[in-house]
Amino acid sequence: MRPSIGIPVELAHRRNAVFRPRDLADVYAHPRAEVARLAKAGAVRRIATGYYALVPRHRLGDRTWSPDLAAAALGIGQADYGVEPVALMGASAARIHGAIPRALAAAVVAVPKQRPTLHTDRGKIVFVTRTVGALDIERTRTELGEGWLTTIEQTILDLAHRPTLGGIAQEDAHEAIRALAGRVDWTLTEQLAAMSHQPAAFKLALAVAGRVPRA
C-alpha cells in the first residue's frame, strides 16, 4: 500500500474491509477525524451512514471506486454481528450463484436481529432476521472479505417462499429458480423445506422449474 496515505496495519489487515469509526478506537485517539482523513485521501470509502470500506490496493486514491452492493451488505452485517451469524440470501445469493445477470438495486442479508432497511450510495440493504446456523450455507468471497452465502438449494427455497424480497419482481425470482434448477439437489431442497416447515415453497419451486404441475 502507498505509505504516504498512512493506513495503519490494523486496518489494512482486517478480515472484513467494512468498518465503523469506533472499531478503530484502539488505533486512533480520534478515530472519526482519522477516518475522514483516510476518506479524503481515497484510502477508505463511506458506503452508508456510520460505515466505511477500505479501498482495494489497486484502487487506492481512486475516489470513483465503490464496492458491490452485496459485498457491502455482507460487510456491514459482519461489522455489526461478526462473521458467523450473517449470510447473503435471496436475490443476492441468486446473483452470486449466476442466476440473476443484472445488477440489483437492493441486497438481502440474513442477520440475527431485526433492523430497518439501510440505504447506501449503491442501493438499499434489506436485513432479514434468520438464524444462519439453521440455513444451508457455503463460503463466499467478495471484494471486501469472506463470509457466508446460502447454497443453491437454500436460495431456491427462499426465492419460492419470498420471491419479491429485496424489491425484485416475482417473475425475476421465478426466472432465477429456473436458471438454478439444473444445478440443484432437489432431495436436499425437500429436506430443507421439511426442516423449515415450508412444503408449499418447495412445491412452488418444483412447479416453477417445470418438475411438477403447480398445485
Rank of each mutant, 00 (worst) to 15 (best):
G182C: 04
R46G: 08
R20S: 06
A110T: 11
A176M: 12
V126L: 10
D172W: 05
A99K: 00
A160P: 10
E84N: 08
G133A: 05
A106V: 09
I156E: 00
G210M: 06
H119P: 02
L88F: 05
T129G: 01
A169Q: 15
D136M: 02
H119A: 11
D158E: 15
N16I: 14
V132F: 00
G90E: 09
I177F: 02
T164L: 00
M195R: 13
R59K: 14
H97R: 01
A209G: 08
V212P: 01
Y52T: 10
Y52R: 07
V132S: 03
R46S: 10
A169W: 14
L192K: 00
I177G: 07
P116K: 12
A87N: 03
A194H: 10
P31F: 09
A134L: 14
L60S: 05
A79D: 11
A160M: 04
L192E: 00
R59C: 09
A17C: 12
R59E: 13
R37A: 03
A110Y: 11
E175A: 15
A94L: 04
G166P: 09
A79R: 08
A41V: 02
A173P: 02
H97T: 08
S4T: 14
H13Q: 12
A106Y: 08
D68Y: 07
A215V: 14
G61L: 01
V108A: 02
V35C: 01
G145T: 10
V18Q: 07
Q78K: 13
A70Q: 10
A215C: 07
T131E: 15
A25T: 14
A79E: 10
I125F: 01
L54I: 03
I137R: 12
E146T: 14
T129I: 03
L88T: 04
T164D: 13
G77K: 02
H161A: 15
E171K: 10
A201M: 12
